[in-house]
């Protein structure tokens, strides 16, 4: 990890990150799927949605992103500053979503090119460096490992410099060590933005969340977190205890583990 200690503050156009609220109910084929509920993402904080697969976490994220889902939202998604959200959202998914025909730099600067801007290649290089891939700028995704590809995806997400970042299980396909590194890296580089992290892993949620919501049967419930600020050490006693509580909650209250 060559990125330790590098700050990108000097290069970044800091944008005030607004809080975000999704309000309403989700309807699937004329049947209510969830809600009515209110999902509030506090400004400049990490909000984690934790729940088993199929609980509707990703659907909530896609509704906020304005992507098509089978579920129709009867309600609103709005930012605190009441400006439109389009163009202010960055997105990172479980798969790296890299264009295989573009090299690392090309992928990182994709958003700029789509907006018809001249890509800031110095900044792109600095970000590639920050995610620990200096020297691999000209490599195609096929030449990179899964972890490296996800780093490129993170660099691209950062390159967008969007105040709102949506993460849909971005680390779940990585091995334990790479995942821990990526979590620390993301926590550091995405600090100050409004982040929504969707995950099915209690450990990850406890490590990174400022606010933790359990998604169950279409409802949301707030879960307590340790006092230490994120990113929390994965082996800290408070982290582990919170993780244990979450496991119990996931299994159903009071059930023996």
């Amino acid at each position: 990890m060559t990125a330790q200690g590098i700050t990108l503050a000097g290069r970044e156009r800091r944008v005030a990150a607004p809080g975000l609220t999704l309000e309403g109910r989700g309807v699937l084929e004329e049947r209510a799927l969830f809600g009515p509920l209110t999902l509030a993402l506090p400004a400049g904080r990490w909000t984690c949605l934790l729940g088993p697969s199929g609980a509707g976490k990703s659907t909530l994220l896609r509704l906020i992103a304005g992507l098509s889902t089978a579920v129709r939202l009867e309600g609103t998604v709005r930012a605190e500053d009441s400006a439109p959200l389009a163009g202010r959202i960055a997105y990172m998914a479980q798969t790296d979503l890299l264009c295989p025909w573009l090299d690392v730099l090309g992928n990182v600067t994709l958003g700029a090119r789509l907006r018809g801007e001249r890509p800031d290649s110095a900044r792109a290089r600095a970000l590639v460096d920050a995610v620990g891939l200096a020297g691999r700028e000209a490599a195609r995704p096929a030449a990179l490992s899964g972890g490296q590809r996800q780093r490129v995806a993170l660099a691209r997400t950062l390159m967008e410099d969007c105040p709102v970042v949506l993460l849909d299980e971005p680390f779940s396909a990585l091995d334990a060590r790479t995942r821990a590194e990526m979590q620390a890296l993301a926590a550091r580089l995405l600090a100050g933005r409004t982040v929504l992290l969707v995950t099915h892993e209690p450990g990850e949620a406890v490590r990174l969340a400022d606010r933790l919501l359990l998604v169950e049967r279409g409802g949301l419930s707030d879960m307590p977190l340790p006092d230490a600020p994120p990113p929390r050490a994965p082996d800290d006693a408070g982290t582990l205890a919170a993780q244990g509580r979450l496991f119990r909650a996931l299994l159903g209250e009071g059930a023996p583990a």
Partner: peptide, 14 residues
């Protein structure tokens, strides 16, 4: 074309 990439392009406002 990968439908996830299509989503990404939509978010980028392509």
């Amino acid at each position: 074309a990968d439908h996830n990439l299509r989503d990404l392009f939509r978010i980028y406002g392509a």
